[in-house]
Design a protein around this nucleic acid. Structure first.
Lengths: 204, 204
DNA sequence: CTTGTAGTTTACTAAATAGTAAACAATTCG
DNA sequence: CGAATTGTTTACTATTTAGTAAACTACAAG
């Protein structure tokens, strides 16, 4: 019973949008409230602090948008190396759309916010670590399947997954800093190189 | 003539230290002044703004510490692939020392600050782009030399360099977020995989 | 229709922060 | 020495920001 509201959702969306396009530190609670069209009193009704909101926004974004996407790309019904290639291809295409629509390549909010706040706020750091580790496990699982099928050499799948993930986030970071899509173009082939997958045209 | 001072250097050092260990956005001019032991009036005597100081600090850090190091690792008197392997090995070792001394792996200040501020401040973005592009060229040059010596397959050296740099920055970012050195351990071998360098024990 | 609950709004305080102006102090060159 | 110059300090203002308290409003269940 009582009054109904979508203010919480509006605040989560506004926060993610502002923090992603600018940065965590530069975005004020007032700015988030203004963008959401919600008064500050209501903000403090739903959240304790900006950090609290950021954690909730990252979580909400992962659960409702990120996870379904990753689940799709890394579906077990797709061949293991195809999952990885498709994912990296999609990374490029999604950021391409973002550049066209927003005028800027914004990369991965989780990684950007994580790098910015990890020495300052434990709550955000833990949530970011959690999401990034979940994402890395998609790679890990696909690599294990590829190894089981003899598509790539055996080895430490977890370590390889960390490398692929580093390539992924590093490329997105460069694309963001330079606002340049070309940093994302070779991702699929580079990933195959890292995994030691046989090329169509053998190297030597 | 006139009064002498090292306040400018103190401010540059304090700013880099604080911004690197925390973030650009969270560090105030007052905090930088306090850390440097310099009054705010003096700050504004030397710099126009925090962004102005940040640009100067990044530049100073690159010129006096970064560039000499990179010049050393990528010396033409070292074999091309050795340059890259040594560099990545050193990346690990330097961050290991940092973790022991400071309690945290801080990664690359240029990339962190760049990702944080690139949509907000043109001055910082341009300086960061400049430094990152210079660094990428060290890879590019080493890759070209490796290609000329037949150590790696021919191909677009600039594109490969971007990939190596993405691996580098992505790994540092993960190491920072998780405060975990293991993200840096496989860098040398992964770099060789990306370049298609022949392994000691061939893959297949 | 009334009552309790969920959410909203306004108006405020206290603190932090950027930025300035002008008097003051040290250094060196003529 | 004594200007001219370079850097320092203090004390200040104006603004932004986080955070709060309490009155107010809409809704839903009984």
């Amino acid at each position: 019973m009582g009054r109904t509201s979508n203010a919480k959702e509006l605040l989560l969306a506004a926060a993610l949008d502002l923090i992603w396009s600018r940065s965590y530190g530069v975005v004020t609670i007032d700015a988030i409230c203004e963008k959401a069209g919600v008064k500050k009193g209501s903000f403090y009704y739903f959240f304790e602090s900006k950090a609290d909101l950021a954690v909730a926004a990252l979580n909400e974004s992962w659960e409702s948008r990120g996870k379904p996407k990753w689940d799709g790309y890394f579906s077990a019904s797709t061949a293991p190396l195809e999952r990885i290639r498709n994912f990296f291809k999609a990374t490029h295409d999604i950021q391409e759309i973002m550049q066209k629509e927003q005028g800027a390549i914004l990369g991965c909010p989780c990684f950007s916010v994580g790098s910015e706040t990890c020495t300052q706020d434990d709550g955000i750091r833990e949530k970011v670590q959690d999401i990034l580790q979940r994402q890395t496990r998609y790679f890990e699982s696909a690599i294990r399947d590829a190894q089981a099928e003899g598509l790539v050499p055996a080895g430490d799948a977890a370590a390889k997954a960390k490398c692929l993930f580093a390539l992924f986030e590093g490329s997105l970071g460069q694309a963001r800093i330079h606002n340049d899509l070309s940093y994302l173009r070779d991702l699929p082939e580079t990933a195959m190189d890292i995994l030691g997958a046989k090329r169509l045209q053998p190297v030597s």
